[in-house]
Amino acid sequence: MKNIEHTIIAYFNGELTTVEIESLIEERKKSAEINQLFLSYRSIENDINNSQEERPSNKLSKNFYTHLESLGKQEKDNTPSAKVFTLKSIMKYAAASIVLFAAGLTLYNNFNINDDKNSQIAFNEFLSDMESKSDTEKIKAIYVNHKPNQSNQSKIKEILISSLRNDKSSNVRLASVETLAEYLDDEMVRSVLIRSLGTEEDPQVQVAIIMALSASKDKEAIKPLEQLINKEGGSKFVKDEAHVGIMNLTSI
């Protein structure tokens, strides 16, 4: 019983091979006791997966940006001729953050402009940075300026999809996947991720796509994952991740 208990835990942790999973399924069929044990661990696993993520208050962001600003001032005082970052440069990166934290808790009172205007500023920043030739600017745009609840969200998704399909930088594509993973309730996004699985060649990006699809609970992803596993060549760790993805999608 001790061994089967570890096997069940390993199953929920994504540690079993396909053969071991099939063996576990057989064990469950044969023994009511083992099936009961499995269900009890599944109940805990469900609680873990449904565990609510909390959001910190605006104090955390406010303090962080204040700290950055003071660092900028210190650096400027110490090296007046050097190129140092300023509040303006920080705010360039944090434009979209201000949208979220604007409800009376901005760094300065003069940032208290209305939400629509802030949203438009963030979106403009996003467009501008995504058109940039710099990978860093694009990554910044994706992580900082893509925030949900913006009026131009469908346009943002389009740009992220285009970036995933066409950008030469694997870092930018990776950032696009991680951000698209926030829109898994959109069938089009899931469909794009599934198709990308067949075309993406960078292992890190492949893993990010697999993880997103695994979380999507979209069974349409199972077949492409199997094809990835059966494909000749390719990274072992990507194939292992694909196995885990299939397990997650089949254990719903």
């Binding site: 990166y93 992580y143 900082v144």
Partner: peptide
């Protein structure tokens, strides 16, 4: 380039 830390913070 410390201003980039905003991306990681966010």
């Amino acid at each position: 380039d410390i201003a980039q830390s905003v991306i990681l913070f966010e």
